[in-house]
């Protein structure tokens, strides 16, 4: 046995040779500067630059969706002019939150899909329902390889029958649809506000476009107030079924904020007249 105080209890070097540090994490040598080839292959374990919430609501003639223009690197504002809502063909839009490099990879996949669809120069066959199914499969297959694309995605647009599609897909390949959808922080901050307006499909059928836009804008304001990794510049996408149009308005600013001393703001402290 080795009686050196730093190696006490280990087999003596003289008899057994150099101690094998690989046994049960027994290394006392800092390996950080050695090649990490002895570590297993690393997959994405955490997102790097990230985009925050995407939110969406259905109204009587379509869908309104929004996502801000920021990419954060931890608490650093790394990108301030990032379009996270992208059109795919003329029937769908996709709003993506989470890791930005994975987002750009998805952007590439979707562009390839769009080009392949355009080989048929006469019809656009790629519809929002195909897109949501495709993305669900991509996300699920990557999670099954234990190498996920670290994103949450909202797909909106028209299906083969020109009906509305609104779907959420996440990094596990879990997909769901609902008249109100949000990713990330939006799930906690925006969804309650959105569901206040639209609880069921019937409510959505009663909501006007103007109300829907206002609701989304209010939510973006609340998100900017309360989500530290959000930004006051965002893209707003309006889908209209009757005209079959999809419009993306870029660089919308959050409006009507109050940053006064809280005492003067209604809702804090003593009720105001």
């Amino acid at each position: 046995m080795n009686h050196d105080p730093f190696h006490w209890g280990r087999p003596s070097q003289g008899t057994y040779g150099d101690y094998n540090y690989n046994i049960a994490h027994a290394s006392n040598v800092d390996k950080s500067n050695k090649s990490n080839s002895e570590f297993p292959k690393m997959h994405t374990q955490q997102p790097m630059i990230t985009g925050t919430s995407v939110i969406a609501i259905k109204y009587n003639d379509g869908i309104v969706m929004a996502a801000d223009n920021m990419g954060s690197y931890g608490s650093l504002l790394k990108l301030d002019d990032l379009q996270r809502i992208i059109p795919v063909g003329s029937n769908s839009v996709v709003g993506i939150s989470g890791d930005i490099s994975d987002f750009q990879y998805l952007e590439r996949l979707l562009d390839d899909l769009e080009v392949e669809d355009s080989y048929d120069m006469e019809n656009e066959n790629l519809k929002a329902n195909h897109l949501s199914e495709y993305l669900t499969r991509v996300m699920y297959n990557r999670r099954s390889k234990m190498n996920p694309l670290w994103n949450a995605i909202i797909v909106a647009g028209f299906d083969d029958n020109d009906e509305l599609v609104l779907k959420h897909v996440d990094l596990l390949g879990v997909a769901y649809s609902s008249p109100t959808l949000a990713t990330g922080f939006g799930n906690h901050l925006a969804i309650p506000l959105l569901r206040q307006k639209v609880e069921t499909e019937d409510d959505a059928a009663k909501l006007t476009k103007e109300e829907a836009i206002k609701t989304i804008k209010d939510c973006m304001k609340v998100l900017f107030y309360r989500d530290a990794r959000s930004w006051d510049k965002y893209s707003l996408c309006v889908i209209e079924k009757s005209t079959k149009s999809i419009k993306i308005e870029k660089d919308v600013k959050v409006e009507g904020m109050k940053w006064d001393f809280a005492q003067h703001i209604t809702g804090y402290g003593i009720p105001q007249q």
Binding site: F6, S27, D30, S32, Q45, Q46, R143
Partner: peptide
């Protein structure tokens, strides 16, 4: 022994499951 320092990567495994 304060100067004996072990170093290893932090285990933060991706969890491929969720309960829905």
């Amino acid at each position: 022994y304060a100067n004996e320092i072990r170093s290893e990567p932090i285990e933060h495994r991706f969890n491929p499951y969720s309960n829905n």
